[in-house]
Design a protein around this nucleic acid. Structure first.
Lengths: 135, 135
DNA sequence: TTTTTACTTTAGAATTATTATAAACTAGGA
DNA sequence: TCCTAGTTTATAATAATTCTAAAGTAAAAA
């Protein structure tokens, strides 16, 4: 993804393309495969790859802004950390608690045959399937 | 559940039936319906219902001891808090993010037709289905 | 282009949930 | 009853995240 596209992506979602956002966006979105990360891991990776430095709060702000704009999804797993996922399509996850690793599962690879009705007055927003792994 | 049964329940799982544990166990297990709670909410409820006071650390210890002994299950949902569930059978959950409320779904009410193979070297430990609700 | 304004970044403080610590206490066996 | 290991407790520590307020910057207005 070219710099100009990053600019577009940010601007079209109402985010000013600041130096920090552009750098973070380039790092996150210029890749073919899905990328899972926590704020902490992203911070470390950015520190390695770039010369600029980022306040931790900036990474939190940016990642949440990207999420709000629909460029990232958030995945909550057992444990204290929040993971983010560059795969924003509807999909599911394997979770390997040994390695604390998330692995995407395509939505088509999980077929649910039967599901209960939502309680009165409520609707189903989405269904998340977590497959926990062991060795 | 009678006090003597609480004693048995605790002792059979290697937990000394201390005053605190017995009171907490009575509060949690002397009910017909599933009960979902966080450590924080349990603390508040206990403060209302009983005259004894409990250190927060005791509630953490006790709840985790109960979980380890298989008397409670733990459910992680979006957000920072950890929920515990007196329903220790294999089951799923609705999650109402408006009210931060968990609702049990019987395992039989969710039928999964197709599921992907675990990655190489890994096995599937369990499958958790979360149905997120909206209004 | 300069000025202005609103949005951002930043470092550090604050908050929140949880766990660790170490001293005092207690259940249950010897 | 005495002893010992397991428990409880208050408090400190930790960890992830959010808040704050000052300094900086992008983009609109002049």
């Amino acid at each position: 993804m070219k710099k100009i596209d990053i600019f577009k992506k940010l601007r079209s979602s109402g985010l000013r393309p600041t130096k920090q956002r552009v750098e973070i966006a380039k790092f996150l979105f210029e890749r073919d495969k899905t990328f899972h990360f926590t704020v902490e891991s992203l911070d470390k990776l950015l520190a390695k790859r770039t010369t600029s430095k980022f306040a931790l709060a900036t990474i939190y702000n940016t990642v949440h802004a990207f999420k709000k704009a629909g460029h990232l999804s958030e995945v909550e797993v057992r444990g204290k950390k929040t993971y983010f996922d560059t795969n924003i399509t509807n999909h599911h996850h394997f979770y390997d608690s040994e390695t604390c690793e998330l692995i995407d599962i395509d939505a088509n690879d999980v077929v649910i045959q039967k599901i209960p009705k939502a309680p009165n007055g409520k609707k189903i927003k989405n269904v998340e399937v977590f497959i926990n792994l062991k060795n």
